[in-house]
Design a protein around this nucleic acid. Structure first.
Lengths: 213, 213
DNA sequence: TTTTTTTAGTTAAACGGTTAACAACTTTGC
DNA sequence: GCAAAGTTGTTAACCGTTTAACTAAAAAAA
């Protein structure tokens, strides 16, 4: 099979296009051009076409793209034509927010379980979910077929949690702890580092100020 | 002044180096080499040296870098040698989590105020902070010298909130709503899109599965 | 004191992603 | 039915980042 390498930036944009297409579809839009998508999400039309070209031909020359079709294609490409069981580890404020975050539940993701090792938290409920002890992670992960884990624990526990996840069949980890995880090659991880983004902002504020001296 | 263009990826890594250096410093490490930093954060030694070279010469050949000094330099470069007043708008679960998130308070950031327009929330407290109505944003932003805003409201309100922030002197916005903000050129914005990261994971899971067929 | 080892800083090459131009195709208007 | 306008898919040039190799300098060893 031809191994076409898709830039991660393309996947990121694809996710954004997909969301934009959902919005268009909800608004009853039938057809959209690369230029309109570009305008809507803040990139160039060429970029939109190039990104889509990695995966096939979805449009009609002279016409554009059928919104509903392209939306379905993008969801399929992103692996969102199936449901993914998530487990969140860490039921602090962030874990709580993630568990109740509606954005996850609308695009193929389903939070199956929430774990925390604080005895004071175990047994409490977040919505429909009871906070479970990490001791039950293996059985729950198996029963619920959990392939994706979300880490919302402090830095000091993050690696340990990742190891447990991986030992129990988790293939991909979204890590909110500001520390790089050490994982086997076949495990996918991405960090959501809010502080880094914030520091890019302060860098730019200071840098610009310095340049305008 | 010579306008050296620093790649955003470099700034991102600088933030990560900086945090790693803090950890080394806490552990009493005096000197560190580019190779050790690289090892610690998962990049190449050449990358570390190249990144630092954008800003000056901080090391000693044959020796390495003084941890404390390099830590201070990176903090300075990132604009973290001063305190930044933040305002969070949106006191839902995410806003609550961000307000209580300790990671922000340790690196030059200080949350000065939390806003929400839900009358049921206004007046309630999150730790030391009372949730304020958006009506008070202008005066508070001025009094507290707020230059950075964090948006933790639903998509439908995000742009409106951004506009209010910008009208009241905010120069940089960290946006947690999964929608691109439309802002004047001189305003810095970055999105923290948790769903996009999650969808990169599912893409990679599916993509790899397809390739191994 | 000289040589070897270590490591930063610099330069150039390789790589990858973005941009822009163009060819192919569809629809619309005349 | 033909020409013009619109829009995609593709190719190639451009640009920027990363990687790697090299040079310079310091420390350690001989």
């Amino acid at each position: 099979m031809k191994t076409l390498k898709v830039p991660e930036a393309t996947v990121t944009r694809l996710s954004i296009y997909s969301r934009f297409l959902e919005r268009l579809d909800r608004n009853g839009v039938i057809t959209v051009s690369s230029g309109e998508i570009a305008e809507g999400v803040g990139v160039s039309p060429a970029q939109v076409r190039k990104d889509l070209a990695y995966f096939g031909e979805f449009g009609t020359r002279g016409v554009g793209y059928n919104v509903k079709d392209l939306m379905k294609y993008t969801l399929k490409i992103l692996g969102l034509d199936q449901n993914w069981s998530l487990a969140i580890v860490g039921a602090g404020n962030l874990g709580f927010a993630l568990t109740t975050y509606h954005g996850f539940n609308v695009r193929g993701f389903y939070i199956s379980a929430v774990f925390d090792n604080d005895p004071a938290k175990v047994g409490q409920k977040i919505g429909r979910l009871e906070i479970l002890s990490m001791a039950s992670f293996p059985s729950v992960a198996q029963n619920e077929n959990i392939r994706i884990g979300i880490i919302a624990v402090p830095v000091r526990s993050a690696q340990e949690v990742a190891d447990i996840m991986i030992d129990n069949g988790v293939l991909a980890i979204l890590n909110f702890a500001p520390v790089p995880l050490s994982v086997p090659e076949h495990i996918e991880t991405r960090n959501v580092d809010m502080s880094v983004k914030l520091e890019i902002l302060t860098f730019n504020l200071g840098f610009r100020a310095a340049q305008s001296l």
